[in-house]
Amino acid sequence: MAFRRTIGASASEDRLEKLVQDRLQPGADKEMIDQRIWDLFGEEWCVMFTDLSGFSRGVEKFGIIHFLQTIHESERILIPIIEDHDGILLKSEGDSFLVIFRNVGKGITSAIKMQQELVIYNKDKIPEEKILLCVGLGFGKVLKIGDTDVFGSEVNIASKLGEDTAEAGEILVTQSVFERAADKHLKFEELAEGPAGTSKAYKLVY
């Protein structure tokens, strides 16, 4: 099964690379090639980026063993929640996750559950052992390349929200997520300033 998955991801990457090379040729019909790329890889997904607040400072202060412990514990707690909500973990790099969900509702519910579980986990922990999660959510048409990566405007914005803008315990969402969650009896606060690439962004009040 692992071998079949490797072949599948490689086939997608090879096809994309060839089409991009074709697009670079003199006189290439870029509009037609772009449409082929979107036809092959374009899908709608809810994209989640997570980050651990103060993680780099903690590693510098407490060392590599602290780093490994924090990563281990965050994965132990959070990955089962992601799976329970039908999320697909595409990447785990250091203290960050890239996760995709088929719909906004499951992405939001998963994010809330992740934060709630960490509140419980942190209750009896000393400050340096607490896991403080930041989450950014986007939704829209993306290019999904096998099970290795996704690209698109909503991906970029969700990344900025989760990794750069959100503070510990926050769930920040794009305008697109907000619009699709407005009828779910959730509360949101508009941010004073959204990241580049979006007119508005919101903090989920949970």
Rank of each mutant, 00 (worst) to 15 (best):
I7M: 01
G8D: 15
G8R: 13
S10D: 09
E13P: 00
D14S: 10
D14A: 15
D22G: 04
R23W: 11
P26Y: 03
P26T: 11
G27C: 13
A28R: 03
E31C: 08
E31W: 08
M32E: 15
D34I: 04
F41W: 05
M48C: 14
F55R: 00
K61R: 10
F62T: 04
G63K: 01
G63R: 03
I64R: 02
F67C: 12
E73G: 09
S74W: 03
S74C: 12
I81N: 03
I82T: 15
L90N: 07
K91N: 07
G94K: 06
D95R: 15
S96Y: 03
V99G: 08
V99L: 12
F101M: 02
R102I: 00
T109P: 04
A111M: 01
E117A: 13
V119P: 00
K123S: 10
D124S: 14
E129Q: 15
I131G: 08
V135D: 08
G146T: 12
D147E: 12
F151H: 02
F151T: 00
F151V: 01
F151N: 01
E154G: 04
V155K: 12
L161T: 07
D164P: 05
D164W: 09
A168C: 04
E170R: 03
V173M: 01
F178I: 05
R180A: 06
D183Y: 12
K184W: 11
K187P: 00
F188D: 08
F188C: 08
E190Q: 13
L191A: 11
A192G: 14
A196H: 08
K200T: 02
